[in-house]
Design a protein around this nucleic acid. Structure first.
Lengths: 233, 233
DNA sequence: CCGTTGATGTCAACGGTGTTGACATCAACG
DNA sequence: CGTTGATGTCAACACCGTTGACATCAACGG
């Protein structure tokens, strides 16, 4: 009598869920992340989640105060598992690049969760680790103390911003992106948009290349204002 | 018998809507933008819109195919009215700065619509004008042709990204932002996050200052790769 | 071993959302 | 004047998050 799924739309079994065992925060989070990664944030419904777990939708409320609470836990879980600290021995520039690129890739890998992240304040405990690591590398690069906030916020806005753009783009694969770009820029009238038409053949279909290029610009700026390699231990 | 409003929650009259005149796309768009600007994207409901116009919710479907269609028209209307072309006589750096900053401010000014923008492909016709102007200034700055796409995409991701971050931040006023920042960074444990705690006093409460700083970094990069001032007409 | 108790899952229901189809109305045109 | 097409209204549908009452079930104390 536990089973109420396969009622309306999905006759598929509750996937690989509990068998007799009770529900669990971790179990719910795992299923939620799977749904969100595979079918997007919009598909992550309490009723859908219940169907996935072979459980009534309202059972979630025994483990999370609300759907927003569940999403918050989901995000924190993500940062906890997928962001790794930099190694102290390497050059600040390599470490800072790794932090930024890993951070950005997290947004790309989990587009649905990124959209969820956008909508709520970032007081996630795990985010503070990224702040700490970033500021530490900025100090190693020789950024003066009174400019640490400015550079950190620049990097934060840059990374999260690029991540949001990537996450919200409805293009799932590189091939789709290429086709979309080609279609859009082919429809561009060279008479009305001569400059844009000139740049059109050189639009990068792979957004990651653009991001890696942009990151070096930021790192260049840090290096310039930091007075070159300072405490290069 | 046209009037069905003031039924449940809002006993207020339908504001300054039509009096006997028929509904109109422009009328709906105006009301929608007002609601969205004043109360956020979540408040923009078809039923709410109908109440605002003194009209049934389903009347919108006579003028827009769906709510997504309405949002799309709303965004295009925004770009049409609030983005102005740069002047050809000024230096490329000033023009490019104006384009980027105006673009970003559009996101700040209309946070609700920005969130709507995030969720859909940017094939808005008016966006092409921004592309055209940006690439033109990049050419004036001396960026080689095969790098125009790279720089344009960098600027696009940078500007839209920073705009999305600003739009999705739930802090409405500068005072609220300052309090939030203070609270978060005051709760920061200096033992666990020594570097972040060092940077904490230098966090900028006004995000616009950070953005203006970041823009100069981008412009510096353009100037560096463009080979200095080239066709400075 | 029984009985109580607290946690967990189920069910029906509420108000909200976008959307559809049938119906009424009203302006314009031949 | 009569027809016709566009426009607004209404009831309804499926879905959403959420709540409160109820059933069940495991664990613990006596």
């Amino acid at each position: 009598m536990l089973c109420c799924m396969s009622r309306d739309t999905a006759p598929s079994p509750p996937a690989e869920t509990r068998r007799g065992t009770r529900l669990d925060r971790a179990m719910i989070l795992r299923a939620a992340q799977r749904v969100c990664d595979e079918e997007g944030l919009a598909a992550l419904t309490l009723r859908r989640l219940g169907r996935e777990l072979g459980v009534d939708a309202t059972a979630m409320y025994r483990h999370f105060a609300s759907k927003a609470d569940l999403l918050s836990a989901l995000i924190d879980d993500l940062f906890l598992r997928e962001v790794r600290p930099p190694e102290p021995e390497r050059a600040w520039r390599d470490n800072l690049r790794d932090i930024i690129v890993d951070w950005w890739k997290l947004y790309r890998r989990h587009e649905g969760l990124s959209q969820a992240m956008a909508g709520q304040p970032d007081d996630e405990p795990q985010l503070f680790h990224i702040t700490e690591w970033t500021v530490r590398e900025l100090m190693r690069a020789g950024i003066p103390q009174d400019q640490l906030g400015l550079f950190y916020q620049t990097i934060y806005n840059f990374t999260v911003g690029n991540g949001l753009v990537a996450a919200f783009s409805p293009w799932l694969t590189v091939a789709e992106l290429r086709d979309e770009q080609r279609r859009v820029y082919a429809a561009l009238d060279p008479a009305r948009f001569p400059s844009a038409a000139t740049a059109a053949p050189f639009i990068y279909p792979e957004n990651e290349k653009v991001f890696l290029f942009s990151v070096e610009l930021i790192l260049d700026a840090v290096e310039a204002k930091g007075g070159g390699a300072e405490c290069e231990n």
